[in-house]
């Protein structure tokens, strides 16, 4: 226990001198880094616009309200596309994530030294890069459209699903696997009987969770030309049609709320 000696009386301290020095140093460095970052941002900012911000936002607000409600009739198809991008993307991602997860899990991978690092690299690459960037990339390769959106969502989701799934696989009860092995089952039978039933609830939960996230992400994919309601948003922004923008934002918000509700319900039903 750190105890300091002061004028002959022993005083309890929370930390020893070295510890508190270290603590202060960390705080000091942290603050210095933050101040430095803030200065960089501040230098790159045109403060004139910032001081003008209240006026501009009030201006945008008056232009954007009320939303152009009749425009909603033209949003049916974009919404349908958005839903399809999210759903198909999720289905493809799940199908591809399952094998990756089994290759990445320590207890099912065929080789810890060679296969596992590759699977982990696939996961981290897919996770590190935002679906908008994947969409940009795919548009550059195969052209704008829904297909690029579906593939962008799928590629981005593989890593997410595979990561959660392989963590679930690593947490299974090995006793059950052992019991199936002891019956003389083949490796594939061990997998379908010993492992799959154990991870099925996690699997369903992950799929629905990711679908919910994908609905959000697919609403903005159109900003770069990958289909869905984002296309309308981009078009309206380009012509500064603020009432349409505000309507689209309302629709996106509604879609997000509905998808979150659906996903919560389904996950509640599974678990």
């Amino acid at each position: 226990m750190p105890v300091a000696d002061r004028n002959g009386t022993r005083v309890w301290r929370r930390r020893t001198q070295a510890q508190s020095l270290f603590h202060w140093a960390i705080w000091l460095v942290g603050t210095a880094i933050f101040v430095y970052c803030w200065q960089m941002i501040s230098e790159a900012t045109t403060w004139f616009f910032v001081w003008d911000a209240p006026r501009i936002s009030a201006d945008i607000w008056t232009r954007a309200t009320p939303p152009r409600w009749e425009y909603v009739t033209q949003l049916g198809e974009p919404i349908w596309d958005t839903l399809n991008i999210a759903t198909l993307g999720t289905i493809i991602a799940i199908c591809l994530a399952v094998p990756v997860a089994f290759l990445a899990a320590r207890n099912t991978t065929p080789s810890v030294l060679f296969v596992r690092p590759i699977a982990l690299l696939v996961i981290v690459s897919s996770r590190s890069i935002n679906s908008l960037i994947w969409a940009l990339l795919l548009i550059a390769i195969i052209g704008p459209g829904i297909l690029s959106g579906v593939m962008a969502i799928a590629i981005r989701s593989i890593g997410f699903c595979a990561k959660l799934l392989y963590e679930a696989i690593e947490e299974i009860d090995e006793n059950q696997v052992e019991a199936i092995e002891a019956t003389g089952a083949r490796p594939w039978q061990v997998m379908t009987y010993g492992i799959v039933p154990q991870i099925l609830p996690a699997f369903a939960g992950i799929a629905v969770f990711r679908w919910d996230i994908n609905i959000r992400e697919s609403t903005v994919l159109g900003l770069v030309g990958a289909g869905g309601i984002g296309l309308q948003l981009q078009a309206s922004l380009n012509v500064l049609a603020w009432p349409q923008v505000s309507l689209i934002l309302v629709v996106i918000l509604a879609a997000v709320v509905v998808s979150e509700w659906v996903s919560a319900k389904v996950r509640g039903a599974i678990i």
């Binding site: 006793n175 059950q176 019991a179 199936i180 002891a182 003389g184 039933p197 154990q198 099925l200 609830p201």
Partner: peptide
């Protein structure tokens, strides 16, 4: 080994049943 394991039945401490089947 798989063929011979069929001739040895095993019973486990914590039952080791597949809980969800």
């Amino acid at each position: 080994l798989r063929r011979e394991r069929r001739r040895m039945g095993m019973i486990f401490q914590e039952y080791a049943l597949i809980e969800r089947l």
